[in-house]
């Protein structure tokens, strides 16, 4: 008995020695590494934030200054003013029409995409049916083909369907969004089937089960995908550029793009408008950071 305890305690001692020994000698090292990492990441952060700072600073300078001297970090207090912001809010231009269009389109896109994609995802995740595998391969196929390749025939298709220059033309092709469907399928396969069976026993229809039992428990998935869809819609450029033809219908990215003339006569509005267009997303990001990160990284979790 005594022997045993002895053996045990020496082993224990050895372990402690082994683990404590390196820690004692590296304590200084750890602080050094910590400081090194901190400095390294602070430098990187400064580089990342620099373009934002540059454009923010430029939004307080007159546009002519930008054309004459370029975008830089010089702070000349004599030329900094709120004039551009005054012009943004009171001047005569279409900025807020575009802003409103972007807002409306983003909200519509988020609602439509979530509802349609969740419905499709539920169909795939819960049921077994004959064409399930071939249809699922179709979902993957769409995910693998970049939109840019199909934009021309898609554009002709919208013309044929009389959807050109309409909101529906923007929304319709992307309501059943493959990546979002894919995410919902993964999310819903994890839901216990008992809920569905219990619903059936209680006499609910297949659709009633989806509407009353499943939709409420999909809230976290909706939050992540809603943010993803909203961000993509707010920043969407190429498709609206093809579909919209009148300035009153433009969204913010296209509207801002029209201000980019070689003569630079619209720089006041371009710069201040660019700054202001980032604002709603930044505010949302600060409030719902976790959902942003979840939405953006959702695809990789499948591993």
């Amino acid at each position: 008995m005594k022997n045993e305890i002895d053996v045990f305690s020496t082993q224990e001692n050895k372990k402690i020695n082994q683990t404590q020994f390196p820690i004692k000698t590296t304590k200084k090292n750890i602080t050094a590494i910590r400081i090194f990492l901190l400095i390294f990441f602070i430098i990187l952060s400064v580089l990342i934030l620099l373009p934002f700072y540059a454009i923010l600073l430029a939004s307080f300078k007159p546009g002519g200054e930008l054309i004459r001297h370029g975008l830089n970090l010089r702070i000349q207090s004599d030329i900094l003013s709120l004039n551009n912001y005054r012009f943004l809010f009171t001047g005569e231009h279409s900025y807020f029409t575009w802003f409103k269009n972007s807002m409306v389109l983003t909200i519509l896109q988020v609602i439509c995409t979530l509802i349609v994609s969740a419905t499709v995802g539920y169909g795939f995740a819960v049921y077994d049916f004959k064409l399930k595998i071939p249809l699922f391969i179709c979902v993957l196929l769409i995910m693998m083909v970049p939109f840019e390749i199909l934009m021309l025939p898609l554009y002709q298709q919208t013309i044929k369907m009389n959807l050109i220059n309409t909101k529906l033309g923007i929304l319709l092709p992307f309501m059943a969004n493959s990546s979002i469907i894919f995410f919902f399928i993964q999310y819903l396969t994890g839901i216990p089937r008992d809920i569905i069976d219990a619903g059936r026993v209680d006499g609910a229809t297949e659709y009633g089960i989806f509407l009353r039992l499943i939709l409420p428990i999909m809230k976290p998935a909706f939050a992540a995908m809603g943010i993803l869809a909203g961000m993509n819609s707010w920043n969407n450029f190429l498709w609206p550029l093809l579909v919209f033809r009148e300035s009153e219908k433009f969204t913010l990215p296209i509207g801002l793009n029209t201000l980019l003339t070689p003569y630079g006569n619209n720089y006041d509005l371009l710069i201040v408008g660019s700054c202001f267009s980032i604002l709603p997303i930044f505010i949302l990001f600060l409030c719902f950071q976790q959902y942003f990160i979840e939405g953006m990284t959702a695809g990789s979790i499948k591993g």
Binding site: I48, A54, I55, F237, P253, L256, L260, L270, S274, M296
Partner: peptide, 22 residues
């Protein structure tokens, strides 16, 4: 993490404009 993520929030239009001027 948040700071590194910020650029992804901007649209290509805004990001492209900033970099064109830089």
């Amino acid at each position: 993490k948040s700071i590194f993520f910020l650029p992804a929030l901007t649209s290509v239009v805004v990001a492209g404009t900033i970099f064109r001027l830089i």
